[in-house]
Design a protein around this nucleic acid. Structure first.
Lengths: 153, 153
DNA sequence: CCAAATCCGACCTTTTTGGTCGGAATTAGA
DNA sequence: TCTAATTCCGACCAAAAAGGTCGGATTTGG
């Protein structure tokens, strides 16, 4: 139905949480899970995936936990989603598999491919640091605008 | 995983098909289904939904079938998708339900709401008539561009 | 009347998703 | 060294959604 999975939601929430305390050291999965009422084990698995994809770093053992691997301003929502849910393909039959059963006649995917790119760009324009502070700081309209395609300068 | 349902795909394919023979009279579900190797009964149900939403008109009885209710240039991909899959909500917890279990602290939905709007606009900018002819006619770059937000004039 | 169609709802199957469990490896601190 | 807290990992299960099927009622042109 064209919506993000809960796992991706959870991932974004957690990553944002880590971004807000970026310089405060690591944070355990349990702590984050409790804060947002997310099933602990599930969140743990999600975070582990993000570690494997290089978005987070982890510290094992007591007093261990997770932390962002990079500056939050350089991490985009798309990276997080892709790491959790896999590549973003809007249609059921896009390149990379080639197993579209109605391939011979299916031409809708052509223009929808463009829509796909737009979505990716939109998600890529949302950085983790911009997931900001409880909406307390609505971004100024200029920087809040999400630029699609070539910058119209 | 953020992709369209097959039903929506089927719906778009069928609607496009009807658009291409817009002035040639009605077309039965069976015929369309055969053409694109889509399960007949499934496609029928999808088309019926589109009728109920006013996108198609139907003619019962022998020699009956479906036809577009409006000019294909005025029907957008988003309308078709919405008619089939329901309203497009990218996050699991957006307005209209208010049943976001982590609502108190979940702020990611704020910026993602913007992404949601972008997607809707993108899908709305794709008209059925633009789903064109087998890619035989790549649209000129100007009309092919999908405009998002205010036109950057 | 008959055949071809839409129409409609119930139902089933498969896939995906969300979530759980158990246990191994690691590590800081008492 | 022992212990508790933690990441790590795979297998497993349950619930939900999606995809697809079926039976039958209704309409309608020939």
């Amino acid at each position: 139905m064209l919506k993000l999975s809960k796992k991706a939601d959870y991932g974004l929430i957690a990553v944002r949480h880590l971004a807000m305390r970026h310089l405060a050291g690591a944070c355990s999965a349990k702590e984050i899970a409790r804060t947002y009422a997310i099933p602990t084990e599930l969140l743990a698995k999600i975070l582990q995936k993000l570690v494997k994809k290089g978005l987070l770093v982890s510290q094992q053992g007591a007093e261990g936990g997770y932390a962002l691997a990079r500056d939050p301003a350089t991490v985009t929502a798309f990276e997080v989603i892709k790491a959790i849910d896999g590549p973003l393909l809007i249609t059921s039959c896009v390149t990379a598999h080639g197993d579209c059963s109605q391939a011979p006649t299916c031409t809708v995917k052509e223009p929808l491919g463009k829509v796909n790119e737009i979505i990716v760009k939109a998600l890529n324009s949302v950085t983790i640091s911009s997931l900001g502070d409880e909406g307390a700081e609505p971004p100024p309209s200029t920087s809040g605008l999400i630029q699609i395609g070539g910058a119209p300068q």
